[in-house]
């Protein structure tokens, strides 16, 4: 009997944790987008107002970034400073690829950043400023939709986890 209770409790805890994990992804996505928007706004200042060389600008802006985008920016800076023959867009796409299957990053923001990488650095300040604004707007839309999704699904996954655990425990009991 004791064994049964303990194992049932274990099942409930595991399933709840699974639910928490699933619902946590929605929060993570929002955090990632927010961090990204921070980096971009700093990068915009460095580029448009200070004309900082791109590698330095990215390094400076991404210094305090947290979350899943950090290694991507580190990777880009390193590749640019090694001065290999790759073009910036190749470096950018290659570094981004590591996030392709990341559950905390949706296809939408991934594609926004992919497009952004094609324009970064290769035009005058006025055009650069426009690309930054456009990207910021698109990311803002994604941030809002991520918030809505969190409202909708985060709670649901959380409850689903507990209920699933309870369900399995009841069936097995």
């Amino acid at each position: 009997m004791l064994m049964k209770i303990i194992s049932s409790l274990l099942i409930i805890i595991c399933c709840s944790l699974l639910g928490v994990h699933m619902s946590h992804r929605y929060t993570q996505r929002i955090n990632n987008i927010r961090e990204l928007r921070n980096v971009l706004s700093q990068l915009e200042t460095e580029i448009v107002h200070y004309s900082t060389i791109l590698a330095h600008a990215i390094r400076k802006s991404s210094k305090s970034v947290k979350g899943d985008w950090k290694p991507v920016f580190d990777n880009i800076v390193e590749a640019l400073e090694s001065r290999m023959e790759y073009s910036l867009s190749e470096v950018w796409q290659e570094s981004l690829r590591s996030l392709k299957h990341n559950p905390n990053i949706h296809k939408a923001e991934y594609e926004i950043m992919q497009r952004f990488g094609l324009q970064l650095g290769n035009s005058d300040k006025i055009s650069q400023e426009k690309y930054f604004q456009l990207t910021q707007e698109q990311l803002k839309i994604e941030e809002n939709s991520a918030r809505e999704e969190r409202l909708k699904y985060s709670r649901m996954y959380y409850n689903l986890g507990i209920l699933l655990g309870l369900g399995i425990a009841i069936i097995l009991f």
């Binding site: 600008a57 001065r83 073009s87 910036l88 650095g121 290769n122 005058d124």
Partner: peptide
């Protein structure tokens, strides 16, 4: 590629 390299990938800085 040369244009990117001579401008350090930063055309905006060399307007």
């Amino acid at each position: 590629c040369i244009l990117e390299l001579i401008s350090d990938y930063s055309i905006y800085a060399f307007e």
